[in-house]
Write a protein that binds this DNA or RNA. Structure first.
Length: 571
DNA sequence: GCCGTTTTCGGCCCGACTGTTTTCAGTCG
């Protein structure tokens, strides 16, 4: 059973218990555990077999026992029992926004509703009106929630949400009554997908700012409008909340609304122990005495902590690291000297070599590696050996004319099903940088896929494994792969692993980056750009690296060009 | 169910907004 499957069981178990009306703290502990399990890169099955489960924070005797059942029998007893008593359609009903466990139970027990369709029908026939605390507005909210669910597939990609937030922030920045402004929430933490967008401003005239906000062209519908908070639905079908706070509370509010929830809960628990109380208005001692609030740094300082970068705020060890003075010096966008995975119009890219160089120079880079597809990837116009050699010659010519900039000849070489590569070694040897990747035959067993990629890594010409897990967010799961083994061999063979910055990929993902670093593996951050504007995706790759605790020295393309070439040759 | 430089028992983050209410429950983040 995979880690994600085990975690999912606990999420569902918690939902079922909630519908049943079980102890909320118990439910919470299952959700906490589910989240911890999702963020483990090691196989939970092995942790279980080695008896190390209870060493994982949030997992005690009870949950360890349930995991052990899942691993050994594929089932967990109380989950199976709950499934028998609670109709499975109610889980979908529970997923409707504004419909919580109490409402689910009410319509189930009073109206015998067990599916989303039944609920929709009942609402339309006004059957909910007779129930306690159910009126016209609630009817409308439920119908809107159902429509929202049917339209939305998963969370929005960071690469879609970020530009939208940027537009809105820039529009409001120009407003004369706006003083400070910042995005908050998962967007500020650069999570790979975004559930809704939070924006925070300070203003002495909140009303006017709200007026401007709800009238923006990106707004499709106004959902709520209070004096300090407005919610709208944007044209990308994602909710956006604007909050106006006092200048004296901006830091506390920013800290609070940036989250994550788990990070904040941990901080509040710490604050409690020190006789402090943290809210979005500030840090308070005793009843009313405010000790911090204007700046985010003050909030952390009140707990004797250094400021923690938003990308780390997931309660995955960052608070303990901050306490012990062990926070990493996270890699910065400005430290990148080049992009090592780009497609040109030789294969399926849109731009010529020169156009790519122009854009890269504008970004302040010293080099790019052009890595077009190899011959067997016909659908992407992969380069035959002959065309690749031609490209190498062309790049040599261009390099002679360039000043303070270098194109590296590269390729994104297919790793075939048997682990062999799509060009012979004598061709690969002529390239500055070889990125190897899997594009076909995803359905192999875990063992076969692991051996396939390891075989490629053992080819001394291969420098980088591109998008190592092959996932496409919201579209395709990663292929089955023993990542721990991959990290081991990457370290041993000095093969770098890529952080692919393309918003659908972000592969390796954050938690894998962290684990790779623990093995001492080097990484690259590259865009996989197919047109020049996509070179700007690099920020999402840097954010992923930062979420994975990576520092400058972990990333190959923070090196100068000579240093990088020396590293590539010296492997 | 988990956890412990106040605790192995008794807590478990905190507040806004909405809708349906004459004082608050439910939901959300």
């Amino acid at each position: 059973m995979t880690n994600q499957e085990i975690a999912k069981t606990f999420w569902r178990l918690a939902d079922l218990m909630e519908i049943k009306g079980d102890n909320p703290f118990k439910i919470n502990s299952f959700r906490k555990a589910a989240r911890v399990l999702e963020n483990i890169t090691e196989d939970i099955e092995s942790i279980c077999q080695e008896g190390r489960l209870q060493k994982v924070p949030g997992i005690g005797k009870g949950i360890a026992e349930r995991i052990s059942q899942l691993v050994n029998t594929g089932q967990c007893q109380d989950y199976e029992e709950l499934k028998k008593t609670i109709p499975s359609g109610l889980l979908e009903v529970l997923s409707i926004p504004e419909v919580g466990p109490k409402t689910v139970q009410l319509v189930w027990k009073k109206l015998n509703i067990t599916t989303l369709n039944q609920l929709e029908e009942a609402v339309k026939k006004h059957k909910l009106r007779d129930l306690f605390r159910m009126g016209e507005k609630t009817e409308k909210n439920i119908l809107r929630g159902i429509e929202f669910l049917s339209r939305r597939k998963g969370r929005l990609l960071l690469g879609d949400a970020y530009p939208l937030a940027e537009q809105v922030v820039n529009a409001l920045k120009g407003h004369p009554q706006v003083q400070k402004i910042s995005p908050a929430g998962s967007l500020r933490r650069y999570k790979e997908t975004i559930g809704d967008i939070d924006i925070l401003v300070t203003s002495s005239h909140p009303q006017e700012v709200m007026d401007t906000f709800v009238a923006l062209p990106q707004v499709k519908e106004v959902l709520a409008r209070g004096p300090t908070k407005s919610s709208v639905l944007t044209n990308l079908n994602i909710q956006m909340d604007l909050r106006v706070v006092e200048k004296e509370s901006f830091g506390a509010a920013l800290q609070y609304f940036t989250g994550s929830k788990e990070h904040n809960i941990k901080l509040r628990e710490m604050a409690r122990g020190k006789g402090l109380k943290i809210s979005e208005y500030g840090v308070f001692k005793g009843e009313k005495k405010k000790v911090a609030g204007g700046e985010e740094e003050e909030v952390y300082a009140a707990l004797n902590l250094p400021w923690i970068p938003p990308e780390l705020r997931e309660n995955l060890g960052e608070i303990e690291a901050a306490k012990g003075g062990r926070l990493p010096q996270l890699v910065e966008l400005s430290e990148l000297k080049g992009d090592l995975h780009i497609h040109s119009n030789f294969s399926d890219g849109a731009c010529s070599l020169l156009e790519l160089v122009e854009k890269a120079k504008k970004k302040g880079y010293q080099y790019i590696a052009v890595t077009d597809h190899s011959q067997s990837l016909k659908i992407a116009n992969g380069l035959s050996e002959e065309r690749l050699l031609k490209q190498i010659e062309e790049i040599k010519k261009i390099n002679k004319r360039l000043f303070n900039f270098k194109i590296l000849s590269g390729a994104e070489v297919d790793i075939k099903a048997d682990g062999s590569l799509d060009y012979p070694d004598e061709v690969l040897r002529r390239l500055d940088l070889v990125a190897a990747a899997v594009h076909l035959g995803f359905k192999q067993t875990k063992e076969a896929m692991t051996e396939r990629i390891i075989k490629a890594m053992r080819n001394e010409n291969v420098d980088v494994i591109a998008h190592p897990t092959g996932r496409l967010i919201n579209q395709r799961d990663e292929y089955k792969l023993d990542l721990e083994r991959l990290f081991e061999v990457a370290k041993e063979t000095k093969t770098a692993l890529e952080i692919n910055a393309y918003p659908e990929r972000l592969d390796l993902r954050d938690i894998h980056c962290k684990r790779a670093k623990e093995y001492g593996v080097k990484l690259t951050i590259s865009t996989d750009a197919h047109q020049e504007s996509q070179l700007d995706f690099i920020k999402y790759g840097v954010a992923t690296a930062r979420r994975g605790w990576l520092e400058k020295e972990d990333i190959l393309n923070t090196k100068d060009v000579e240093e990088l070439l020396r590293w590539l040759k010296g492997r």
